[in-house]
Structure formats: structure tokens, C-alpha cells
Design a binder for these strands. Structure first.
Lengths: 203, 203
DNA sequence: GAATTCATTACACATTTGTATAACAAAAAA
DNA sequence: TTTTTTGTTATACAAATGTGTAATGAATTC
């Protein structure tokens, strides 16, 4: 293995382990050069061949493109995923999720996934809002506002609808003319407010 | 928000974005100190209260404990994210991504994110297919089939369109009557095939 | 009100860090 | 063989970097 390859390999392992790039002299020691210039020499070549990217002064050596920083960031977190919202169970926190999904909370404007959960959308009643059958809906447990899309438990059934305010109170609006709106007879229990959507594409 | 909190917040966002900790002076500029000493002053406090860990000399400031080293589920992986596909650059692997996004490849039917990348959708030309302005499109570099939604480089411009076959060859179809279809004059370079969509919900 | 702590700044300085120059041997090309 | 390229080292140095000292005003405590 030549020096360039060894440098790349060390770059990979060091960055992975320490969560920041090494310095030229750390590379020097690891690869066995007696002068930092040897490292710079190869870094120049690796940069020309686009194997690495350099920015900033200190610790600015990154693996290029998709190979680079393919490391796990600290930002990912687990979201509980329910294939179906269990009807009649008001508190999802007490329900065992079917699995966990790892995603960055920031993707949906969340700092933590603490109050969030994911369910699969069933049916086409929200197609007008860009929500399709089979989508994964990311919901946050919080106080809903008028206009929010919410997962609600209405008279024993769970649905994803837009929460609309009216003279007489709330009702749940479909965003598809083929589906009726819902006016809760008695209770309206909001399970969560829609904050994101994940869709696997398959035509 | 006090200075200590602001420093932690910047630490979080900078490390997240640049994949390495910032320097004291970078923190200084971001938080608005006029001297680097102000930062050091708070770093000392944050270290004493175990909010951060310091090691090495340059760029050695890490968020401490569970926050910094929050473990990933084994299933998460990093996708390179490009805020815009650089036109004229056929190989995205050679381009430095703007940041990395952590998600499970399996969400999109992928085993690894090796050939995948993420870009933000611009414009409404694919609204008919349920793809909205601002969505994150997950694309995989692979041979496109007829009917696939692809990110393509047509005559120097990058667009997301449906690839359709015709007697005379390929063309790119918009899924919005307000937008024209594209018939590539010369070259048609497919950057990737749509495999998923991530949307942050904000009405 | 006085004393003390806290938050901040200006300045300084030893190290660290990246890279340049020059030199040299080995390998490859001519 | 001579020339050129490649890989490496010793030395040097400017810029970056972390932190120390002293000073200052504001807030807090006594």
C-alpha cells in the first residue's frame, strides 16, 4: 500500500474515531513520515485527484464527496414507529412501538424525538394536502392549532385530517372531495400534529 | 439565552454542519464576543459542569456525554445532501456535500446510502406526482428505467422530471400542466433516480 | 455603601499547524 | 548513461490557535 492510500486509510479511521479530522502531524506520525512535508506532498496529490477536500487551516482535511464523512453524526435519533395507531389508546407513550426508525429530528424542525412518533398513512383522504397512501407521517404530541394536520381519535377511530375550527367547535376536514369531513360526536382526542412526511418512492 | 447556552448551541450546530468542532475564535465571532478570552472563560465553566469535553489543542471542543456521543442505531447512515445540484458537474461523488443527513437507507428500499444522495426540490413542476417545492428528494445513482422520476442534467440545467420514452428517444415530462416538458437537444445526463422523499411539514 | 463576584475586553504569548524551500536518493524515462 | 520524475527529509516560518494577565464595568452579596 502506497503512502497516499495509507493517508486516506488513516484519515478514515481517525475521523471515524475522533469525530474530527487529524492534523498533518498526526498523519505524519501515523503513516511514519519523518517530516510533515511528506504528508503535505501527498495531500496535494490527493486534492488534485479529488480524493480529499481541504478547508480552513487546522484539521481541515476531509475525505471527498460521498465517501467523506459517511460517518454517523450525533444528530440521528430513534422515532417509535406504529404500523397503526391503536384505537382507544390515548397515550402512545405507553404503547410498545412496532419498531424504531432512525432519522434526524432536525429534518422536521424537532430538537429531540421525545414527543414524536411515526405512523403509516392509510387511505387517500388527505391526498389534496400531498399526503399519500403508504406515506410515513411524523407526528408530534403537542397542542394542535387550527389548520394543523392531526392524527385524531374520533369516536373510537383514528384518522389523519386537517383540524378546522367552526362556530360550534372543531371538526376534521378531509383534503379529498371523495371523502367526508368528520364532526366528532363526542370526544376528539388529538394524538399528534403532523410535522413531517417520509415517502418511499415506487411508481 | 446566556452566553454559555449560546456557545453550546453554536457548538451543536457547527459540529453538525461541518463535522468537526469549531475553533475558539469561530465561536467568538458566532456568539459575538470581542475577545477570544470571553469564550475561554465560558468553556472553562462548561467543562467544570461537564457540559463539554476538551482534548487536543485545536478544534478540541466536544459536547460531553450522551449529548455529544449519542449512539446511533446501527441502521442509520449518512446521506450526502446538496442544497443544489451543481450544473455541469456530472459526478456528484467528487463534490463536497453541504451536509450529511442521517436516515435509515431501508426507508427508501436501499441497503446502503453508497449510491444515494439528497437534494432539495425547487419549483412546482412535479406537484402532480406529489413532489412539492422544498421537499428533500432522495436519489440513487443507477440506470434509469422509463417512467422513473429522475434528476437530470439537460443542456446544462438540472431538473427533476419523469423520464418518458418515445419513438424518437427520451424526453422529460413535467407533472404540472403549467410547466413544459423537456426534450433534450443534445445530451441527457441522469444524475439519479428518485427513491424517496422527505418533507418537513409547515402549512 | 462597600466588598465581592460575574461577564467581558484588550493585549500578549507560547504552541500548534499548514506549507514553503532546498536538498537528496531512488526509480523511471529518455 | 543522462535526465526527469517521484518520494522523502531537514529546516524554516507565517498564520492560526488556546489560554494567561490585567483591567473594567455591571450585577450581586454582604
Amino acid at each position: 500500500m502506497n503512502s497516499g492510500e495509507r493517508i486516506l486509510k488513516f484519515l478514515r479511521s481517525y475521523t471515524d474515531k475522533h469525530r474530527r479530522p487529524p492534523t498533518v502531524r498526526e498523519i505524519q506520525r501515523a503513516v511514519g513520515f519523518k517530516s510533515p512535508r511528506g504528508v503535505s506532498y501527498f495531500l496535494d496529490k490527493l486534492e488534485k485527484t479529488r480524493r480529499i477536500v481541504r478547508r480552513g487551516r487546522s484539521r481541515g482535511i476531509f475525505l471527498a464527496g460521498t465517501e467523506g464523512l459517511r460517518r454517523e453524526p450525533e444528530t440521528a435519533a430513534c422515532f417509535p414507529f406504529f404500523s397503526a395507531i391503536p384505537a382507544g389508546r390515548a397515550d402512545l407513550a405507553e404503547t410498545e412501538p412496532d419498531r424504531q426508525l432512525a432519522m434526524e429530528p432536525t429534518l422536521f424542525g424537532l430538537r429531540t424525538p421525545d414527543r414524536a412518533f411515526v405512523v403509516r398513512v392509510r387511505g387517500r383522504s388527505m391526498e389534496g394536502a400531498g399526503i399519500r397512501d403508504g406515506d410515513l407521517a411524523v407526528l408530534e404530541k403537542k397542542e394542535p392549532k387550527a389548520g394543523d394536520v392531526v392524527a385524531a381519535l374520533v369516536d373510537g377511530e383514528v384518522t389523519l385530517k386537517r383540524l378546522v375550527t367552526e362556530r360550534r367547535g372543531w371538526f376534521l376536514k378531509s383534503e379529498n372531495p371523495d371523502f367526508p369531513d368528520l364532526t366528532p360526536r363526542r370526544d376528539l382526542e388529538v394524538q399528534g400534529v403532523l410535522v413531517g412526511l417520509v415517502r418511499r418512492w415506487k411508481d
